[in-house]
Design a protein around this nucleic acid. Structure first.
Length: 292
DNA sequence: ACTCCCCCCTGTTAGC
DNA sequence: TGCTAACAGGGGGGAG
């Protein structure tokens, strides 16, 4: 599942292959891929033609490409971006134009240089694309696409402030894992890395946030940063491939997981068997001894 | 205003 | 063997 490390891997890969190139044609093969774009499939496709990919950026699990305008559009037009979320199964494939379309290609961009296509491929269609305006959030920290101004900074970006996070966390009346998954509080963490960070910090997922000590929050943040950084390092080895392929389930970081998906296997610290508990109609994995 | 939960979707797998 | 049901889970939006 694409969480921050996987999305960053995709961002870096796409940056390498499409920045500086100009879209010749855009085609939406499944309208659901642009369901959040008010212009609809035809409007989206028409508006993307002639645009130049300028920069590839990311916050949490969202990535976007700032766009240059065609020459006939005034340079004072607001900065726009192609915003993407990979959902559960989204991929950004860079492939030669003659490559046959796989059944799950949802949107396709060809380029004026005749080079490789960009194909948004998404088996389960939880991901989406939209053409949006950039805007500055209230704290003026960093320009982001308008639809994601409510998404908090992720722990690996400069705009992330541990003090702000700590105070907001302490003010919440919820469980610590719910808070980690709340993208408006801290972004980029999904079910896998939440369990991994909680295991490293020796905290149980159901711990009420308003009972956390500041030292525990600090430990948790360190664990979050460590696990995301290590996973990013492991996932970053595929940058040189011609296409950028992300499949969280077969990712390189699998071997390094200490809790997630390891029900019945021994804890790496104390050898107690890892347990699985139901949580929000999903699974939470933890060590019964280390994470009381 | 805040928290919680359902639902969107499809391929794989477990179970009867 | 063949079918159904559970499961994977990000996040919007509505209910409470």
């Amino acid at each position: 599942m694409p969480e921050l490390p996987e999305v960053e891997t995709v961002r870096a890969g796409v940056e390498k292959h499409v920045v500086g190139r100009t879209v010749a044609t855009a085609a939406v093969l499944n309208p659901r891929a642009v369901r959040r774009d008010l212009a609809g499939p035809d409007g989206f496709a028409a508006a993307m033609a002639g645009r130049t990919f300028l920069r590839a950026e990311r916050r949490g699990k969202y990535l976007w490409f700032t766009l240059g305008c065609p020459p006939d559009v005034g340079s004072d037009a607001p900065t726009e971006a192609l915003l993407a979320h990979l959902g559960m199964s989204g991929q950004m494939l860079v492939l030669p134009p003659e490559t046959p379309l796989s059944p799950h290609v949802r949107a396709r961009f060809t380029f004026t240089d005749g080079g490789p296509d960009l194909r948004f491929t998404d088996q389960r269609t939880f991901g989406h694309l939209m053409l949006v305006e950039m805007c500055l959030p209230d704290d003026l920290s960093r320009a982001v696409p308008e639809p994601i101004v409510h998404i908090a900074p992720d722990p690996l970006e400069d705009a992330f402030d541990p003090k702000v996070f700590t105070e907001r966390l302490l003010g919440k009346k919820t469980q610590v894992k719910r808070a980690l998954l709340d993208q408006s509080l801290i972004s980029g963490i999904g079910n896998i890395y939440a369990d991994e960070a909680l295991w490293r910090a020796k905290l149980h997922w159901a711990r009420p946030t308003d009972t956390l000590k500041r030292s525990e929050i600090s430990r948790l943040l360190d664990a979050v940063c460590d696990v995301l950084t290590e996973a990013l390092k492991a996932g970053g080895t595929s940058f040189d491939a011609l296409y950028v392929n992300v499949n969280g389930e077969s990712g390189y970081f699998d071997r390094s997981l200490n809790a997630y998906g390891r029900e019945g296997e021994p804890c790496g610290r104390c050898a107690t068997l890892i347990r699985r508990e139901s949580f929000m109609n999903r699974s939470s994995y933890s060590c019964p001894r280390c994470q009381k």
